[in-house]
Design a protein around this nucleic acid. Sequence first.
DNA 1: TTGACATGACACCTTTTGGTATCATTTTAT
DNA 2: ATAAAATGATACCAAAAGGTGTCATGTCAA
Lengths: 111, 111
Amino acid sequence: MPADLQGAFRALADPTRRQILMDLSTRDMTIGEVAEQFEITRGAVKKHLTILAEGKLISVRAKGRTRINRLEPLGLKSVVDWFNYFDNFWDDRLNNLKNAIERESRNKHNV
Amino acid sequence: MPADLQGAFRALADPTRRQILMDLSTRDMTIGEVAEQFEITRGAVKKHLTILAEGKLISVRAKGRTRINRLEPLGLKSVVDWFNYFDNFWDDRLNNLKNAIERESRNKHNV
DNA sequence: TTGACATGACACCTTTTGGTATCATTTTAT
DNA sequence: ATAAAATGATACCAAAAGGTGTCATGTCAA
């Protein structure tokens, strides 16, 4: 359904952008406030915020001469949903791993 | 704990690599078998598989002259775990959204 | 042993990224 | 009205990405 998952995954690929998302999870922030938390220029931060917005991971609303950036839960959710495709897969595989470990454990005790 | 989450997120940023992961969720495959599913060269697919392996999203084992690529559930899980950081956040936000919609709905009916 | 098969390893190319620096524009406060 | 504040918009750069093509290496099968 979300045909633009690419934008979200692309946005998540950069560590600075992931940190911005974590920062925004505590409170909404202006571009300047976000920029304060990093050593790169405000211009660079602005670019990161633009990419996050393109990926629908944040939304921006103008307030006077500032822009308030806000985390968008629906955007994050769409990414998590992508991983649901593997649910059956990793349940099985993780169970196999668990079983293998237990078997290994039993073997050790029986030696 | 997974200090190298960057490798995983980097690997997930490319659509071809995400498709490879989905393909590998059905069965383990050699490099050649994976390459058959795309129009790019085998060399390019090999690079993608290397990046996926660096991100711990797949593992590779040699078998004769072939290399069997296998999806790694633990690698995928480490990425999903990163999103848990936002759990409280988006639960609240999504509930607010839900409430807002219901409130809106009631208003309409009461007009 | 010898050719075909499956990869590995490079060199090379173009586009995208992440950054910087600079200048224009919009608002606010005095 | 005007200077300072917050951001928008560009041009420019070096490095990383995603591809291709070519040649070397290891392996199987006859």
